[in-house]
Write a protein that binds this DNA or RNA. Sequence first.
DNA 1: CGGAATCCTAACCGATACTG
DNA 2: CAGTATCGGTTAGGATTCCG
Lengths: 141, 141
Amino acid sequence: MAAVDAAEKRTQAKNAYNAFLAACPSRQLLDRISDRWVVLIMCALAGDGAGNAAGPVSMRYSELSRLIAGVSQKMLTQTLRSLERDGLVTRTVTPTVPVTVDYALTDLGLSLYRTARGLRLWAQDHMDDVRARRDAYDADR
Amino acid sequence: MAAVDAAEKRTQAKNAYNAFLAACPSRQLLDRISDRWVVLIMCALAGDGAGNAAGPVSMRYSELSRLIAGVSQKMLTQTLRSLERDGLVTRTVTPTVPVTVDYALTDLGLSLYRTARGLRLWAQDHMDDVRARRDAYDADR
DNA sequence: CGGAATCCTAACCGATACTG
DNA sequence: CAGTATCGGTTAGGATTCCG
């Protein structure tokens, strides 16, 4: 009995939220957040889109749509919904005519932004490096 | 003329590698790296998979395949190829019988790992928070 | 304005079989 | 062992139309 319990504990401690495991819930969460639109929306709502507002901002649906070029309204809505569901953004409806909807980061969303931001910046900062490596690779084929 | 040059300069400075722009090359790079397999492979090759090897490791194809549960050999190969092309990992073939192939992070890959790791850890660390928010959201529908 | 609903196709991706 | 090649299903995701 004691041996079984100990073994169980070890297994649990080892496996608790390990994204390397296919069945782990954190794997699904990783799937969700490693998405281009998620990263860009996070960055937008954190204020990275403005000149340098330096701080989280509240943005309307149409503002997001304009800032994040190329996103279809379907994907934008879909992504925002899942982010809202996961507690990463808030959705505020103001009953003007026509209606006004604002999105903003929650604290949880802000914490994700902190690392998502790195991804976007890395892409921008190392674009030239990657291009060079890519050209070199393609050269000898 | 001077006015035009100044305007051009401002535009270039503002737009140089801005992932918010659909046409920007860094957007495509962002698409590539915000991928579950990329994140997991980076973490694996950085040594996050081992107990705590604390440091980049070299791994064989089959080792990666075993560590990253659920990845199909097609996706693993495909992802590794693109990572190699982009200069993020090296592929070393040792002509034993049967052949041995090792993968390892480059310096560039290591720099990406530094931020990709955050994504995986965030997913693991905040799984419970997200679950709670998700349940709360689903409750009132 | 901020969506929801529908349709449709391109790609992703897994499963399988075969190879050096 | 470390792949390549092919096929087929699923789905992401765009375009369009309509609604409160």
